[in-house]
Deep mutational scan, measured.
Amino acid sequence: VTTYKLVINGKTLKGETTTKAVDAETSEKAFKQYANDNGVDGVWTYDDATKTFTVTEMV
């Protein structure tokens, strides 16, 4: 189990959250659901070296 981080650069929501998951794909699903639940829709990137997802909304 690995800890993954999500950085949110939204128009109205900014911040970070973490989750523990067995792999990046599992954490990505959880993070995308979290973003969707909070009305964040944007461009996703992933940095495997830091286990960090970033979602950026276009303004």
Rank of each mutant, 00 (worst) to 15 (best):
V1D: 10
T2C: 13
T2A: 10
T3V: 13
T3I: 13
Y4C: 04
Y4T: 03
Y4K: 02
K5S: 05
K5Y: 15
L6R: 00
L6F: 06
L6P: 02
V7F: 07
V7W: 04
V7R: 06
I8D: 01
I8W: 09
N9I: 14
G10W: 06
G10P: 02
G10H: 08
G10Y: 06
K11V: 14
K11P: 08
T12L: 11
L13W: 15
K14P: 06
G15D: 09
G15Y: 15
G15F: 15
G15S: 13
G15V: 14
G15P: 04
E16I: 13
E16N: 08
T17P: 03
T17D: 03
T18A: 06
T19E: 05
K20P: 05
K20C: 14
K20V: 14
A21G: 07
V22Q: 10
V22W: 11
V22E: 09
V22P: 13
A24W: 14
A24C: 14
E25A: 14
E25T: 10
E25S: 11
T26Y: 05
T26Q: 12
S27E: 01
K29M: 10
K29H: 08
K29A: 11
K29E: 07
A30N: 08
A30S: 08
F31C: 02
F31T: 01
Y34W: 15
Y34Q: 02
D37K: 10
D37S: 09
D37I: 10
N38W: 13
G39S: 06
G39P: 01
G39F: 06
V40F: 10
V40G: 01
D41Y: 14
D41Q: 13
G42K: 00
V43D: 07
V43T: 10
V43I: 12
V43N: 07
W44G: 00
W44H: 00
W44A: 01
T45V: 08
D48V: 09
D48C: 07
D48M: 08
A49W: 08
T50N: 08
K51P: 00
T52E: 03
T52W: 02
T54S: 05
T54H: 06
T54W: 08
T54F: 10
T54D: 01
T54E: 04
V55W: 01
V55A: 02
T56G: 03
T56M: 07
E57V: 10
E57H: 05
E57L: 08
E57W: 08
M58V: 13
M58G: 10
V59G: 13
V59E: 14
